[in-house]
Computed example of a mutant assay.
Amino acid sequence: MPYITTPDGVEIYYTDQGTGQPVILSHGWPLSSDAWQTEIKLLSDAGYRAIAHDRRGHGRSTKTFTGNDIDTYAKDLSALVEALNLTDVVVIGHSTGGGEVVRYAAQYGKGRVAKVITAGAIPPLMVKTDANPDGLPIEVFDEIRANVLKDRSQFWFDLAESFFGANHGRDVSYGAKIDFWRQGMLVNLSAAYDCVKAFSETDQTEDLKAIDVPMFIAHGSDDQIVPIKDAALKAAELVANATLKVYEGAPHGIHGDYQEILDKDILAFIAE
């Protein structure tokens, strides 16, 4: 299996498929690059080089308990891009992965990144603060941390319901829920716990303002994990060259009819 080693000695697993312009996909919490398998095939079939990595602490990467923050995630992505000597890169990030690619493009990917795509992404800031009064209360994230510690196996099952919108009547297979659980069980507990702070309390307002390439911002109107009002609607106002698309009734998880439409939109945006 292919790995690169970061400057601090963490092994990052990645999958690399196809040839052509490189497209890197960053997954959400608590998943792995397996969450992008459909997109990897579609992109490589369309003539792109599709690359997806397991974030540190997740999947097949080193089960580290250090560096579980957005800046280190972005530095790990930079290490991968540099190790593979990639240019003209399209970066795609879902959820926490959206925060990762935004930080990378803003601070580490200058001259390498051609376009940025996010779906259900966390920027600019999820938690409620004096400067962000309509964010989610910190107690929401404290409860997530408590559930991760108490019984993470059951919590991943429970979280899959709202992640995919099954609790709102969407048709979600048992297999999809099991796969979410499977990927969640691969994450190091410390990494899963610390990542809650990373995805909820990292203010990426300045990162968004620094994006100087075209950016496609996708978000479901029924996203129960990253509410659209705290994320995409604000992000689109901060990015100089942003295209915002709201998917009516779509959940946080990229699945079903939402996935089919989003994947077509991703291919169209890259080809522009």
Rank of each mutant, 00 (worst) to 15 (best):
D69W: 00
I70R: 00
D71Y: 02
T72Y: 00
T72S: 11
T72K: 05
A74F: 03
A74T: 13
K75V: 15
D76Y: 03
L77D: 11
L77E: 09
S78H: 14
S78Q: 14
S78V: 00
A79G: 08
A79F: 00
A79Y: 02
L80G: 04
V81L: 02
A83F: 01
L84Y: 01
L84F: 11
L86C: 09
L86E: 14
V89M: 04
V90S: 04
I92R: 00
I92P: 07
I92M: 06
I92C: 08
G93T: 11
H94I: 07
S95L: 10
S95Q: 09
S95N: 13
G97S: 07
G98S: 13
G99R: 08
G99K: 06
G99D: 13
V101D: 08
V101S: 05
V101N: 09
R103D: 15
R103T: 15
R103F: 12
Y104K: 08
A105E: 02
G109W: 03
K110F: 01
K110L: 12
G111W: 06
V113R: 01
V113H: 01
A114T: 12
K115A: 13
V116T: 05
V116W: 10
I117L: 11
I117N: 09
I117R: 06
T118Q: 08
P123T: 10
P123M: 04
P123Q: 04
P123L: 03
L125A: 04
L125P: 04
V127A: 12
K128Q: 15
T129H: 11
A131K: 05
N132D: 12
N132G: 01
G135C: 12
G135H: 11
L136E: 15
L136S: 13
